[in-house]
Amino acid sequence: MTDEPLLRVSALSKFYGSRVGCDNVSFDLWPGEVLAVVGESGSGKTTLLNCLSTRLLPSSGTASYRMRDGQFRELYRMSEAERRFLMRTDWGFVHQNPADGLRMTVSAGANVGERLMAVGDRHYGKIRATAVDWLSRVEIEQDRIDDEPRAFSGGMRQRLQIARNLVTGPRLVFMDEPTGGLDVSVQARLLDLLRGLVTDLGLAAIVVTHDLAVARLLSQRMMVMKDGRVVESGLTDRVLDDPRAPYTQLLVSSILQV
């Protein structure tokens, strides 16, 4: 098994005129690693995530991804067809609002099965069985398989979105505030589910969040962003227990104790 990184990002920057989206971000990500990108509103973390997942083109910098055949490909030089294929098979993207990542007017089973059908699966019975299996893995009752996500609660929709993303066995998952807007008890359940799936499936993930507790729970490594720049990075527990940058110290000290 090769010890090469899965994703190599170098000097990634995105400017809107003179306004900084993100500036000079570099890092490597290995298979099975979860990287949290933490910051407050306007920190550039969402811009960074959108650039990394090729939903936005950066102003400068490169990102290379190691494909399943072991070759590195530069993401921003790929054709749109290749990028879209990557998004559907080897990558996942979990949106903060699950409605953005689901087809709301189509059944839960079809939502999970769509990617399989998109890559050529043509056996109804097998597709349905896979959907049933995934629904149980994300703790959605199997008898909801033919219901539309319009009838689901927020937490259930989010879990369905996760199943929809993971069904093709992606190696890299992008998550944008995956627990944002959910009730606390629902959050806890979702985080535990994510933790388990990431470990069991050996997923690499980049998780954008403003919640340090989510970062602590899900990630091994962390980047703190402010005004588009990375102000501190390292092991998650090190950054949270021994913050060195002024902004990180401010963030950590601002957490309310329960």
């Binding site: 189509v106 059944s107 769509e114 990617r115 059908m117 398989i145």
Partner: peptide, 13 residues
């Protein structure tokens, strides 16, 4: 064309 098969899947379901 995955979406096309989604429609057929929904019919069967």
């Amino acid at each position: 064309y995955g979406l096309m098969h989604v429609k057929l899947y929904e019919d069967i379901a």
